[in-house]
Design a protein around this nucleic acid. Structure first.
Length: 933
RNA sequence: GCGAGGAUGGCGGAAUGGCAGACGCGCCGGACUUAGGAUCCGGUACCGCAAGGUGUGCAGGUUCAAGUCCUGUUCCUCGCACCA
């Protein structure tokens, strides 16, 4: 059969040929290399644009279709900005340390260094095949020793810093030490340190009388990176502890394994100190409201009072029980207290039971709570608890109230103990009813009455004693008065609290950054100042599933045991024996600062030079594109590091990401049976247009859901490129709908975008010769349409609305197809507006038109405002808001003229017959609305 | 429970308070073809032969004019969740 497809028809084969050719040329010419200030070729007069993608975690599975969605969007913006004369920083790299790579290595028996390298090579190949205009000379990987050496350096900066609450600012630890030594700061533990007990915080020392070790303890309580015995989320299956953020519904985010609580000595970041800064910093940012709200909620800042309740009899060292409450005005209604099962009071009372203590019941309850995974604990919300036998004294009225232990109180929030006010707190109410505890009303609603538990603001009642009274005060005043009284009596103080907890930073796994920390013979920690601390080769990286955490790096004995001199530790004799920290950093570490490194990727002496920071990041990253799944974790952690680095003077911008945009998720269709179970996409046939399950012949319903292997609806980008080409793929994903929306993949729709490129190609190129076919005479109507398309595309790119920009390009090509043809000038301008979206075909058109250089580096075409409108316009004439007639009028006709014309029109007069005109609304050039009855 | 967002043709979606449905898919008709799952041209919200009428989840309201603003409501999606 004769093949009469023209030789230069734009089909998948030609697209693939064009694309690979231009990609090779861009690479050979380093077309998108962006020099830094001071480097040859740097153009100082240009404005800058830093366009950043969230770098991928290179998995063995390769890219999925969600990756190129965000990457195409930033590529369009980067290419557009380049054409508009910006210096564009558009880099790419690899987030390559972390649990998934290690899990994969364990499964396959291949070392993570090898599997990761392979995955990176594959990702790079796939990304290059899309023609993304990254500056590959800036490529980096978090696993590069050069890179993670700086990650470790930043850790040491954080370790050697503290947060000054007065100034709301991080400062070098040396300044704190100077203040302590000079006596300008009282020698006390950090009052906000979560790891220090209340008894210790109360003490005031004489600095010079303290031993070195005692001084160290006080200094350490201020450090922003600190070591503490913590109740942690221990995941035996993964053989590591996890951050709260990595635990979802009591299971590990990775793998979905059960997580238990156990005490462990761990490195933590004092991120809670930055809680208020992290909320406040969101104010000026151009971020999605939802993401700002998520972070604010996650940090969960609340203001209240910390109140001490004196124990009826001291328990060992403990004399007081501290609680945090946002409702100090309800103190008179506190009829009992509750401590978390992990609270120190519990072990104290087990040591020295009171007459009323039921030791065995208490022991059973506490051990049960400990062994219960968070999952069980959260699923079962019925209130349980045990009386400890201890009583505490209510400071406002001297009443002795019982102290209970119950797992509805969490050790991780506030002080791990509460005063229970069952009349005005739902949970306390439920607990009191379950255990027959007294309920005393101390707030009444300002008007009306309430059944059950009233937890809103109201008026204080029954709130007076011989020492203090707040009766009759509205809640806000009652809070203020009682807090002032508590402070004056030294029984409490105003307190800010965050739901956010300090960030657990240790992992017991192999595939992560080693800590730049060693321990001396006394077990004291010291920072390492020689970077990188290289991850030792380890042939056996199999974690042991156990209840007792054993860091994998402990197996590298030769690496663990070293000397201060060899490790690069200051302040110890060079031959002093030290052992290295064997925990590793979590996967988040590398992604906390990679956007800084791109600006200066080969600087050996520091993470980023001052010049590179000032130029590229002086006001932060101009656009950060990535998935909403990172709204809290990565985006909060990175802001935290950045704020510290800013406070310490290492970076100039107060916030790292000026504008943030989340691309929506790409979903796919699946089919659902009547019983809501899902049917894989390839087991469904269309029968008379209705989807039917092949095996059963039953009707199924089309739904939209996440792509998944089990539904066999995962789309492989490589296949799509082979079938249609990268330009079509890029256009399709951008055309699916608004970038921020989640939307279903529909392979059928891709053809429409390929047809568009085909028509565009044919509009300029003769399919049989490959030569341009151009018109000599300019069609003025088509010229106006080109100006409109340029204006529309330009505006739409600026507002990140690529679907409508592409619609405008399609509209222009359709208009061109029905007109006599494009002139050379029109074809050449069209190639430019097309270039950000479909860069390969745009380059090919550009070259075939005989233009010099690359269209990718050409200037964006301008448009003429005067060309955006036609001389005459059609104006609808409405009567009572309904369109009844249309008039052709000069575009610039003013309101009075238009009204006159409309009312004089015979058709309008006919429609108005028998009615009187009440009012005429005229929008010049738009419409006429006649109100008549 | 708290927080955020959404609902427009057969499907994806478009619309600074100013002609609802741009553009694409699909579908219908035609042209060119030995052929068409290629290409080109035309049509396509719904009801109606038409004139015309009806339409943006539902019920109200503001306005000359509402998909858009306001009030209430239903359903859906996402995030957090015993946070004192």
């Amino acid at each position: 059969m004769a093949e009469d497809i023209p030789k230069f028809r734009y089909d998948a084969a030609l697209a693939n040929d064009i694309e690979t050719r231009w990609q090779a040329r861009w690479e050979a010419e380093q077309s998108f290399r962006q020099p830094n200030p001071g480097e040859p070729g740097f153009q100082a007069e240009r404005p800058k644009y830093y366009c950043l993608d969230m770098f991928p975690y290179p998995s063995g599975a390769g890219l999925h279709v969600g990756h190129p969605e965000g990457y195409t969007a930033t590529d369009i913006l980067s290419r557009y900005k380049r054409m508009r004369g910006f210096n564009v920083l558009h880099p790419m790299g690899w987030d390559a340390f972390g649990l998934p790579a290690e899990q994969y290595a364990i499964q396959t028996g291949v070392h993570p260094a090898l599997t990761t390298k392979k995955a990176i090579d594959n990702f790079r190949r796939q990304l290059k095949r899309f023609g993304f205009s990254y500056d590959w000379s800036r490529e980096l990987g978090t696993i590069d020793p050069d890179y993670y050496g700086h990650t470790q350096w930043i850790f040491v900066q954080i370790y050697e810093a503290w947060f000054d609450v007065q100034q709301q600012k991080g400062r070098p630890i040396s300044e704190l030490i100077a203040e302590l030594e000079s006596g300008t700061r009282a020698a006390q533990f950090n009052p906000d340190a979560a790891e220090v007990g209340h008894e210790d915080k109360r003490k005031v020392f004489a600095w010079s009388a303290l031993s070195k070790r005692e001084q160290r303890a006080i200094i350490d309580s201020y450090r922003l990176a600190y070591l503490a015995q913590q109740t942690v989320n221990w995941c035996p299956k993964l053989g590591t502890v996890l951050a709260n953020e990595e635990v979802i519904d009591g299971r590990s985010e990775r793998g979905g394994f059960p997580v238990f609580r156990r005490p462990l000595k761990q490195w933590l970041f004092r991120i809670t100190a930055y809680g208020q800064r992290l909320i406040k910093g969101l104010e000026g940012l151009d971020w999605p409201d939802a993401t700002r709200a998520k972070q604010t909620n996650w940090i969960g800042h609340s203001v209240g009072a910390e109140v001490s309740f004196e124990l009826a009899q001291p328990l060992g060292e403990q004399q007081d029980l501290y609680v945090f409450t946002t409702r100090p005005d309800t103190l008179f209604g506190a009829t009992y207290m509750v401590v978390a099962p992990e609270h120190p009071l519990v072990s104290a009372v087990l040591q020295a039971p009171r007459p009323e203590t039921d030791v065995s019941a208490l022991q059973v309850y506490v051990s049960k709570a400990r062994n219960r995974s968070d999952l069980d604990r959260q699923q079962d919300k019925t209130k349980t608890g045990v009386f400890t036998g201890v009583y505490a004294r209510n400071p406002v009225n001297g009443e002795h109230i019982p102290v209970w232990v119950a797992d509805y109180v969490l050790m991780g929030y506030g002080t791990g103990a509460i005063m229970a006010v069952p009349a005005h707190d739902e949970r306390d109410h439920e607990f009191a009813l379950a255990f027959g505890l007294p309920i005393r009303e101390v707030v009444k609603p300002a008007s009306g009455s309430v059944e059950g538990c009233f937890s809103d603001d109201g008026i204080a009642i029954n709130s007076a004693s011989s020492v203090v009274s707040i009766d009759g005060l509205p809640t806000p005043e009652a809070k203020a008065k009682i807090t002032a009284w508590l402070e004056q009596q030294k029984l409490g103080k105003k307190k800010h609290n965050t739901r956010l907890r300090d960030w657990l930073f240790s992992r017991q796994r192999y595939w992560g950054e080693p800590f730049p920390i060693v321990y001396d013979a006394d077990g004291d920690h010291h920072p390492v100042k020689k970077f990188p601390v290289e991850l030792p080769e380890l042939a056996d990286y199999q974690p042991e599933e156990s209840d007792e955490p054993r860091p994998l790096l402990a197996k590298a004995q030769a690496w663990v045991h070293t000397t201060a001199g060899a490790a690069g530790v200051e302040g110890l004799p060079a031959d002093a024996k030290v052992t290295r920290e064997t925990n590793t950093m979590p996967g988040w570490a590398g992604s906390c600062w990679y956007y800084l490194r791109y600006a200066d990727p080969r600087d050996a002496s520091e993470p980023i030079s001052r010049e590179a920071d000032r130029y590229w990041l002086g006001d932060g990253v101009d656009l950060y594109m990535g998935g909403a799944e990172h709204a809290v974790l990565h985006l909060l952690y990175a802001r935290f590091w950045h704020q510290i680095l800013h406070d310490l003077g290492h970076v100039s911008a107060p916030e790292p990401f000026k504008k943030l945009f989340h691309q929506g998720m790409i979903l796919n269709f699946a089919y659902e049976r009547a019983d809501k179970t899902l049917v894989p996409i390839d087991e469904v046939d269309a029968v008379e247009g209705e989807p039917v399950e092949r095996a059963t012949g039953q009707r199924v319903t089309q739904i939209v859901t996440k792509m998944s292997k089990s539904l066999r609806n995962v789309i492989n980008p490589d296949d799509v490129i082979a079938d249609y080409g990268a330009d079509t793929f890029r256009l399709y994903e951008m055309y699916m709908g608004p970038l921020e929306a989640s939307k279903p993949w529909n392979t059928r729709d891709i053809a429409g975008l390929q047809r568009f490129l085909q028509r565009a190609w044919r509009l300029v190129i003769d399919e049989s010769t490959g030569q341009p076919k151009l018109s000599d005479a300019e069609d003025p109507q088509l010229e106006r349409q080109l100006h409109r398309a340029i204006a529309k595309v330009q505006g739409d790119i600026e507002r990140i609305a690529f679907n409508t920009a592409i619609a405008a390009l399609i509209g222009f090509v359709n208009a061109g197809t029905s007109a006599a043809g494009l002139t050379r000038s029109q074809a050449e301008r069209f190639a430019r507006v097309l270039a950000p979206f479909a860069p390969h075909v745009a380059e090919e058109l550009w070259q075939r038109l005989g233009m010099d250089g690359l269209v990718s580096l050409a200037a964006w075409p301008s448009y003429d405002d005067a060309q955006l409108h036609d001389a005459t316009v059609e104006v609808p004439v409405q009567i009572m808001g309904k369109v009844r007639h249309r008039l052709q009028v000069p575009a610039e006709l003013d309101a009075a003229g238009l009204e006159k014309l409309a009312l004089a029109d015979p058709k309008v007069q006919e429609l108005l017959a028998g009615k009187s005109v009440r009012k005429v609304v005229v929008v010049p050039g738009k419409l006429v609305n006649i109100v008549a009855n």
